[in-house]
Structure formats: C-alpha cells, structure tokens
Amino acid sequence: MTPIWTVTLLATAIAAAPGARADEATRFALSGELRLAREFQQAATTDARTAAQLQLRADARRALDAQTGLGLHLDAQTALQRRDGDAQTATPGRVNELYAHLDLADWQLAAGRRIVAWDVGQAFRPNDVVQREERRPLLPTTPQGRAVLQAERVDADSATSLVAVEPQGEAAERTLAWRHFHRLGTLDAHLHADWRQDRHAGLGAALAWVASDAVELHASTRWQPHLARHQTLAGWSWTGGPDLTLLAEAWHDGAAARRAAQRNLYLRASLKDGAWEPSLDLLWQPRDGGRSLGAGLRWSGDRWRVEAAWRRLGGPQTAAMRQGPLRQNGAIAATLAF
C-alpha cells in the first residue's frame, strides 16, 4: 500500500474511532488536488515529460474539553509520469506532512513530519533554518516537511516556537531552533537562534513593516559566528490598488558556494485582472552579470486553476548561472481542487 493511502486510512480511522461522532467535539476534513502538467528543460538536449499528480490533505481533531484538543494532520501525494521516449512510470507516494498535535490553551505540542517555514523574504530567506525550502519554484509546489518535535506558545500579539529537527540525509545533523515573534502595531519583529549537533550556532533577526496601505518593507539577517559569515536581505513591495503588485529584494548570501553568486537582486511584477494574473520576474547577480528571466500566467476559477511559466538563464558565458547544463525550462499545468 502506498503512503498516500496509508495516511488517508489512518486519518479516517481517527475520525471513525469510538466517540468520534460528527458532533461539535469532533472535526474531520478531507481535501486535495489533481494536477496534470507538462514540463520541459533545455540543456544540451531538450527533455520533456508529462505528469499526473494526486495530492490529498486530511485533518482530524477531537476536542477533549473547552481548551484542549488532540489532532492529526496529513498531506501526501503520488504521481504517474512519462518522459518523452520512455514508458510511463509511477512515482512512489510521498508524505509531505504527517504529524500529531496536542492543543493546550495557548500552547501547541506537535510531533512528526511537518513544514516549519520561517522568515519574511519572498525570493530568499536567511532564517528559514528548519525547512530550508526551495524558493522561486517554476510552479507552486508543496515542500516535504522535516521530522520535528515542536512546542509553540501563541497569544494575541506574539508567538514563541522551539523546534528539535531530526537529521535527513547523510550530511544532515540534529538541530535545535528557536523563534520569537512579536507584533508592535504595524511592525512585526522576529528573533531567531539555532544550534546544530556539531556545536555550530546561528543568530538571526527579521522585521516587516506595513508603512501604508500600499507600501511594505522587510529585512532579515542571520549571522554564523563559527564561519564568520552572514546572510542579509532587504525588500520592498508596493500594491497599486487590488491589481498591480511590485516586489524588489536584494540580498547577500555568505553561504553561497561561488563568490559571484553571493550578491543578488530580484524584481517581480504581477497584475491581477479578474481571473487572470500575468507576472514577470528577474534575478540578477551583479558581480558576473548572470541573470534569470521568468514569465508566468495564471487563471483561477472556483475549483480549477491553469498556469504556465517559463524561465531562461542568461548573461556572460563565465557567469555562475551559466555553469550548469540548464539553459531554460517551462511548464503548463491544470489543477482541480476538491
């Protein structure tokens, strides 16, 4: 039995357990998406594939009393795909999230595989030390969560989280991460700290300020004393009514493998016109002139979403972005939510 059906049956079993009736004390929700996508990558040759992906989400929660509840959350997916010239293959089911949580008034305790994404940046997040999810994917995707133990306390204006992260992969190490968030009117302040099994530590801070109905400013920084390096981002967004949104972000990534890739400038513009939303974006590395130019188009209905995206790498032949085999890629996908 694939993991996607295993976790679905597990959540269903909780909802059907003795005492878990469809009353005010018990909640069970099941939703998902079916996506059909066509993707291509151009390197020395062009590689294209077609994929059908099923993603399911389920939540089960049982209220124990007025302030206490026990729940289970899952997010899992599986897919069939065919690369041009090859036979159709099935992708093993993947569990993105599967965790149990205990709600105790202002506290929540959680254990299992969970997505814990932090920080305020859009294209780059220095303080995303738990999830470390890929930024700027060609099409929206759900990352696979990390194996965590988490304790979080939340009130009206602040939240404090402590997360123990189990290693994944041979090079990973156990990590303990802490974050405190506090809202001061229109200003959101974040403090971060993390400690790894090799006794290396990191400290970080972030701010997000809604300066007006149209302008938002944000900044984030992380310092790793043992490596004497830092990662720092500053960003600005402007919203012209409900239709036009402009985003600009600049950052220094001291952890980048190549010095030429440490400094980055990212620009994005999107326009909402009814159900349609076109967008353009540019990532530029000024030290060597490398650039990534992208364009996207999305149509959103009540249950259907259709989107297309394209990205091309450019700049001098010596640019860091040009050293890999990839030159351009694109995708088109239709998604049905249920």
Rank of each mutant, 00 (worst) to 15 (best):
V306E: 00
G274N: 02
V129W: 13
G330R: 06
L207K: 12
P126A: 00
R179I: 00
A275F: 03
Q55C: 03
G112T: 08
Y266S: 01
E170R: 15
R38C: 01
P225Y: 10
D84L: 14
D155V: 10
A11R: 05
T141F: 04
A234P: 04
N329E: 14
D23K: 05
A189S: 09
A100Y: 05
Q168E: 15
R287F: 06
G235M: 02
Q168P: 00
D23G: 13
V210L: 10
A275G: 02
F40C: 03
G240S: 11
R222M: 07
D273H: 11
A275C: 00
A48W: 06
P242Y: 01
R322T: 04
A147V: 01
T89C: 00
H230Y: 14
A90L: 13
A177S: 14
A11I: 01
W107G: 05
H101E: 13
R153Y: 11
A159W: 03
G241Y: 02
V116F: 03
A66C: 00
A189P: 08
A248R: 02
P167K: 05
A228W: 09
G71I: 02
G69N: 06
L72M: 12
G314N: 07
P3W: 08
L162N: 06
K272Y: 03
T50Q: 13
P3E: 08
V215W: 15
H101I: 00
A29F: 03
V154N: 08
P92Q: 05
V210R: 15
N264C: 06
D213H: 08
A269G: 13
G121Q: 13
T221P: 00
Q317A: 15
R113Y: 11
S158D: 09
V7M: 05
P140T: 07
H182T: 13
E152S: 12
D253W: 09
A43E: 10
G274Y: 08
S161N: 04
H182K: 11
D128W: 12
L74C: 03
E173T: 14
R311A: 08
E134A: 12
A234I: 10
Q67M: 02
D128L: 12
P126G: 05
D273W: 13
A43R: 11
A76V: 05
W299L: 09
L283Y: 03
A337G: 06
P167T: 02
